[in-house]
Amino acid sequence: MTSAYFLREVLTNIRRSPLMSIASVTTVLVLTLILGYFTTVMVNLEALANSLLDEVQVVAYLDDDANQVSVAQQLERIPGVQKAHFVSKETALNKLVERMQGRIKVDDLTRNPLPDSYEVSVSSADDLEMVAKRAERIAGVARVKYGEEIAQRMLRFNALVRGVGVVVLGLLFLSTVLIVSNTIRLTVFARRKEIEIMQMVGAAEWFIRWPFILEGVLQGLLGSVLAAVVVGGSYAMVIPKLTETISFLPMVEAQNMLPTLLPILILNGAFVGALGSLVSVNKFLKV
């Protein structure tokens, strides 16, 4: 009987002030959209930074006539080198073809333009420069590439992305709660007389609160589900196209992003709605 009562109260509330409900739903919708898009950008930036960091290693490209075994031995003798991993020109070509997603074909090439190489993993990013310099002097090594600068920048960038992300997400969350609580406060305010009467005749506080909290949850859910549909739909649509155009950027694929992101967005919407309601209704429940 009580749950039916609560539901009836919620529906009455929404019917009585549809504009306020629309305002709440729209607020949650817009803020969840911002939250959702912001999160996808953050996650992608971090994935990018991580993938770049992973690639930070010294790559020694070999002359065509180099003695692979001798080069490997000399590379591994350099202090700070963990391992020298041989990448044949064929492997390198296959990797490139894979990354370009079929836009170049092995068959199109008359010969493999890529050299053999060693990917030298270094125990610390600080050693990169020294290792690179010594590797360059080894006979049979044509060219050495390493991305120290990029590594440092990426590390700093990653920290920045996280810091900014946490602050912005926190602010977004807070502002959503405040705005929702403000719009719901108007519906609570419109019913303050009723609340007063309920308190006067002895309604328990939770009994007074629940319809409003349910209303908040419902509005939050509605707004966030709509936003999740938009964020999810657009992400699933845009990412394949982006990967196609800028193939060197490692994007987080939709199936790796959305199953986690969307439930979080929806739950967040419901939570924000509940919290907003609670904040408002408590203001009117002072005994």
Binding site: K193, E194, E196, I197, Q199, M200, V201, G202, A203, A204, E205, F207, V287
Partner: peptide
């Protein structure tokens, strides 16, 4: 306690000048 107040009010009826009906 604050949460006991509603239960007190079930034993104490109150009426006002302005009726306070819905």
């Amino acid at each position: 306690a604050r949460q006991e107040v509603p239960y007190l009010r079930r034993s104490v009826g109150v009426i006002f000048q302005d009726f306070r009906l819905l």
